[in-house]
Design a protein around this nucleic acid. Structure first.
Length: 579
RNA sequence: GGGCUUGUAGGGUAGUGGAUCAUCCUUUCGACCUUCGGAGUCGAUGACCCGGGUUCGAAUCCCGGCAAGCUCACCA
């Protein structure tokens, strides 16, 4: 339990006792106030009806009854609020001891044994990951890290769409389009990293799509291939699988470059091969909601499931009896439920209706679980939506390269003393950090227009700002040499020192919000607040050049360094000792 | 046309019933310090889409507009 939690409990008890004395057990809440004048506050507006008195009079009365004791150093009434201040000395010692004791585990909750499966990214393996969808791995990975800190047993997963028309078009393109045609292609997407399979084959995919539209002959060939694929022709299935695997390899490389590593890759074709998708079809057919078209395609009618208008027809098998993506997705979710206690899907907002239909179908199948969902709006270009097929994209690989090269020149211009190799290593940490931070800092459901100058922002509310503060803390500790690690509140009384400790003490609450409520964007905001508090401390009091406060202040720097490191780690960003 | 989501200073963004100042970044203007790392600190300017309603109190909730995004396949 953190110092703030202990304080909150104490305030709760004090208020409860006071209310009992005036003969009521009316409920109340203890909140963190929006103003700086108190550490915790109890609004008295709701009590005013029950107690038939003005809010501020109630607050005054309670303030008189509660005497400062324990962690409560001051109680007062203001504007209808009952305000509490926490004893500075206990705040400082309690918080700093917690941090020093827990170290890189500070902010972690004890393991609760609950298995959470986080499915994210799951991008179609028909082209490189572009920034339009780059929110997915970053949100998913950050959420997974936060849940892990909240004590969950987390497993991440990518669903690979290796079935269907898109995959077949890709394979046809790779098999039939000559190197010469590829070389002549002029597409405005940069795709400079041509050694990667995803960048190489996306051109085949794009051209194949175009040829299919223009040439009935090509369309026929692809149809034949698709039919062969669907009846399980060994050569065709093997051929598609091999190409998709190569594609996915390139995409994994991109993910690794932004520190995203996924535990399990589950292939969609699995649910055809093991027959579980067919079983879903049979079970759905038995339900009272099942109906069929005259030619034999089946659907369930979802009008009783809060699905409106024309969207109620949820088709789950074709006229020829084959399964559809949605059917296989149902089988996939049933499979995930077997392996985990909680299932979270991180999806693009285009999947909202599909996800709702999936949940309804799960209910019809008698499944009592459903996935938690987290939707994000697409990142678009100033000229509109990105499209792999049309080649209107900014690839994530290009963004990474650009950010790293920008970081490289920044470091180069500041540090003449650093080796080339070291500059390159740090540039990668800074560049990738800037991208992850910039994407995660915005609430997922807000639409986002991609602008290079914003994506590469290194000042103010940015990843590099956090990393810089961390590097500064490391530098002070390096220069400090030997010091006595002391937690001495009597030496840390400056306003900015108290402020810094207060911010540090909030960390575990932020982790809880980010994990349990899935408010991942709270994390970068917190990191920024912490870095600002540290910089203010740094600017207003000397650390190494102080006398009797020296050890206490260096210890506070060490605490800050630990928490900044934990924040960076949770954001999937590197923590550079220097930059 | 139906459904879902979003609308906050010049640009971006937090806050989703409560406290004489609505957060933070950027831009613009001014200052600090050029010292333990200036990718810094302090100050100024500037905003709740529009119209009703509910409430002691609304950026926040409800209704009606307007604008943007997504969606409404025997695609994945």
């Amino acid at each position: 339990m953190s110092v703030m939690d202990l304080f909150k409990t104490e305030v709760e008890n004090a208020v409860k006792t006071a209310l009992e004395k005036i003969g009521t057990n009316t409920s109340f809440i203890v909140e963190v106030p929006s103003v700086e004048t108190a550490d915790l506050a109890v609004p008295c507006f709701l009590m005013s009806k029950v107690l038939r008195a003005a809010p501020n009079d109630i607050a005054k009365k309670l303030a008189e009854m509660i005497k400062p004791s324990g962690m409560i150093s001051d109680v007062n009434a203001l504007n209808g609020y009952l305000n509490f201040s926490m004893d500075r000395s206990q705040l400082v010692t309690g918080t700093m001891n917690d941090v020093l004791l827990a170290g890189d585990k500070y902010g972690n909750k004890v393991s609760n044994g609950i298995r959470v499966n986080v499915e994210h990214t799951s991008a179609n393996p028909t082209g490189p990951i572009h920034v339009g969808r780059a929110r997915n791995p970053i949100i998913g990975d950050t959420l997974a890290r936060c849940l892990s800190m909240c004590g969950y047993d987390v497993s991440t997963e990518y669903y690979v769409n290796d079935v269907g028309k898109q995959a077949v078009i890709l394979a046809w393109g790779v098999n039939n389009i000559s190197e010469e045609t590829i070389n002549k292609d002029t597409c405005n997407a940069t795709a400079k990293d041509c050694h990667k399979a995803d960048h190489k084959f996306v051109t085949n995919y794009r051209i194949a799509n175009k040829m299919m539209e223009e040439d009935p002959e090509v369309q026929e060939q692809i149809s034949i291939m698709l039919r062969k694929f669907e009846v399980g022709d060994a050569n065709t299935v093997f051929n598609v699988r091999k190409i998709v695997e190569a594609m996915l390899g390139g995409m994994k490389e991109t993910l690794a470059n932004i520190n995203v590593f996924i535990d399990t890759y589950t292939w969609e074709s699995k649910f055809i091969i093991d027959g579980s998708a067919k079983k879903i079809v049979e079970n759905l057919k038995k339900s009272k909601y099942a109906k069929h078209e005259s030619d034999g395609a089946y659907y369930v009618d979802l009008k009783d499931f809060d699905v409106h208008g024309k969207n109620t027809k949820f088709i789950f098998t074709r006229a020829d009896g084959t399964t559809l993506y949605t059917t296989r997705d149902l089988a996939y979710h049933m499979d995930k439920f077997k392996r985990s206690d909680k299932v979270i899907d991180v999806l693009g907002e285009d999947q909202k209706l599909g996800s709702k239909q999936l949940c309804s179908a799960l209910q019809i199948l008698g499944c009592n679980k459903k996935p938690d969902t987290m939707f994000y709006a697409f990142v678009s270009l100033p000229e509109g939506r990105m499209s792999t097929r049309k080649g209107v994209v900014v690839y994530l690989d290009d963004l990474i390269d650009e950010a790293i090269s920008r970081a490289y020149s920044e470091i180069k211009s500041r540090r003449s003393d650093m080796s080339e190799e070291k500059i390159r290593d740090i540039a990668k940490i800074i560049g990738v950090g800037a991208i992850r931070y910039n994407i995660i800092r915005v609430q997922p459901e807000k639409q986002f227009v991609f602008k290079w100058e914003e994506a590469l922002n290194f000042d103010g509310n940015s990843g590099p700002f956090l990393q810089y503060s961390y590097a500064r803390a490391c530098s002070i500790l390096r220069k400090a040499g030997k010091f006595r690690e002391v937690v001495d509140a009597s030496k840390l009384t400056d306003e900015c020192e108290i402020k810094l400790v207060k911010v540090i003490s909030k960390f575990s609450n932020v982790i809880e919000l980010a994990g349990e409520m899935k408010y991942v964007h709270k994390l970068p905001a917190y990191g920024h607040e912490l870095a600002v508090a540290f910089n203010q401390f740094y600017a207003s009091v000397p650390v190494l050049n102080s006398d009797e406060e020296r050890d206490a202040r260096i210890t506070l720097v060490k605490c800050t360094k630990i928490v900044l490191n934990n924040v960076l780690n949770c954001l999937g960003m590197g923590a550079p000792e220097e930059m």
